[in-house]
C-alpha cells in the first residue's frame, strides 16, 4: 500500500483527526505515524487499540487513565508518542480529539 492509496481515501477534519473511525486500519495508522517520524511497534498498537476500545465504550480518555491501563506507564506513553502524546495517539487511533484536563 502506498501513502497516497492509504491516506487519500480517508477523511480528516481541519485539525487532522479522522472523522470516521471505521476508516481506520493498522496500515492507515502506520502511514500517519510515518508522517510524524514514528515507526509503530506492537506496544504502540496495544495503546492505539486500547484508545479505540475505550472510545467506543464511551469512556473519557486521559493520560491518567492510560497510565492506569496496565499497558504503559505515563513516562512510557510520552516516549511512545513524543510531543503531545494524547493528541498524537488519538490521531493515529482514528478517534476524535480528546477533551481532557489530565
Amino acid at each position: 500500500m502506498t501513502d497516497e492509496m492509504t491516506l487519500s481515501d480517508i477523511s480528516f477534519n481541519e485539525e487532522g483527526y479522522m472523522t470516521n473511525p471505521d476508516e481506520w486500519s493498522r496500515d492507515v495508522a502506520r502511514e500517519l505515524a510515518r508522517a510524524n517520524d514514528i515507526e509503530l511497534t506492537d506496544k504502540h498498537f496495544e495503546v492505539l487499540e486500547f484508545l479505540r476500545k475505550a472510545t467506543m465504550d464511551g469512556e473519557k480518555l486521559s493520560i491518567r487513565r492510560i497510565g492506569k491501563s496496565g499497558i504503559v506507564d505515563i513516562k512510557g506513553f510520552y516516549a511512545l508518542f513524543p510531543g503531545a502524546p494524547l493528541k498524537l495517539a488519538s490521531k493515529l487511533a482514528g478517534i476524535p480529539k480528546p477533551a481532557s484536563y489530565v
Binding site: 473519557k60 493520560i63 491518567r64 497510565g67 506507564d73 505515563i74 510520552y78 484536563y101 489530565v102
Partner: peptide, 18 residues
C-alpha cells in the same frame, strides 16, 4: 469525580511528562 488526581500523583504525572 472529574479524574483530577491527588496532588502527589499529579506531580508524578508532570515529572513523567518531562
Amino acid at each position: 469525580k472529574m479524574d483530577i488526581p491527588p496532588v502527589s500523583e499529579f506531580f508524578d504525572m508532570i515529572v513523567a511528562g518531562g
